[in-house]
């Protein structure tokens, strides 16, 4: 296998008595697209939170690019090269579309208010470069003409794309998308698939959570399957598809749905 970019080692997260993520381990190789699937409540989003430091692990370790990130706060992890989106889009409603994407480049600025005040030409140049880069990102997702729009004027499909543009802005080494196709119509989903394919061709490593099984089987080199906090499979798409444990987990979910 190629160089490892992300290594999750026995990651565990408890919420009171509930073990949302239970001693899960897996690795993502550089340039690989890894899928993370599982029924609702399996712990996929929580796994994202643990990797990005939005929530601390109860036990276990997170390694990124060979460095132990377990105790690093969230704001220190994204400048290291990991970027994510959230299952429920979390854009800043007081900022325009462009400004939201510009925030993705925040770590490029020298830290602190006094440094900003004394920044002079260098800071002004950074601001200009940031705008240009953010416009480039919006162009990539096809929303350059909506740069000045407000968040509440956008459709959910567009918001997901803005979120992805913001995550891509800093040029991450690992892109993590939490159900990017949720709520999109067929055309938008196809469009998203094309975009992810392009990113994958560029060699970007990805971790993808998605409910649409066909979508994820196409988009990924490998699939990790979780059920009730535990990893139940970790293999290439073709074998995961026929894995009896995976099938029963999904059938269990259908049965639960049917019972409702």
């Amino acid at each position: 296998m190629t160089e490892t970019i992300l290594k999750v080692e026995g990651a565990t997260r408890r919420f009171g008595g509930l073990v949302a993520v239970n001693a899960v381990s897996f690795e993502i190789g550089k340039g690989m697209a890894c899928g993370l699937i599982g029924p609702n409540g399996a712990g996929k989003s929580t796994m994202f939170d643990l990797i990005t430091g939005v929530r601390p692990v109860s036990a276990g370790d997170i390694w990124f690019k060979g460095q132990r990130m377990t105790n690093a706060p969230a704001h220190a992890r994204s400048p290291m090269g990991m970027a994510r989106t959230f299952q429920i889009v979390r854009l800043f409603r007081g900022l325009s579309v462009l400004e939201n994407v510009m925030l993705g480049l925040h770590p490029r600025f020298a830290d602190g208010i006094i440094r900003a005040l004394l920044g002079g030409k260098a800071r002004a140049a950074q601001e200009t470069a940031t705008r240009a880069r953010a416009m480039e990102m919006l162009d990539f997702v096809g929303l350059a003409d909506r740069a000045d729009a407000r968040i509440e004027e956008m459709t959910l499909g567009q918001l997901r794309l803005v979120d992805i543009a913001r995550a891509l802005a800093l040029g991450p080494d690992l892109l993590m998308l939490d159900e990017p196709a949720a709520g999109l119509n067929d055309a938008e989903t196809d469009n998203l698939g094309v975009m992810l394919e392009r990113l994958r061709k560029q060699g970007l490593s990805m971790l993808l959570v998605e409910h649409d099984v066909d979508f994820i089987m196409n988009a990924c080199d490998r699939i990790v399957v979780m059920d009730r906090g535990t990893k139940i499979a970790d293999d290439v798409p073709a074998r995961v598809r026929t894995d009896p444990k995976v099938i029963s987990a999904y059938i269990g979910q259908r049965a639960a749905h049917a019972a409702h």
């Binding site: 939005v54 706060p73 704001h75 800043f92 925040h106 770590p107 830290d111 913001r166």
Partner: peptide
């Protein structure tokens, strides 16, 4: 607007 999202983007 959203402290968690801000932190995830590298804002201290």
């Amino acid at each position: 607007d959203d402290e968690t999202a801000a932190a995830a983007l590298g804002v201290h």
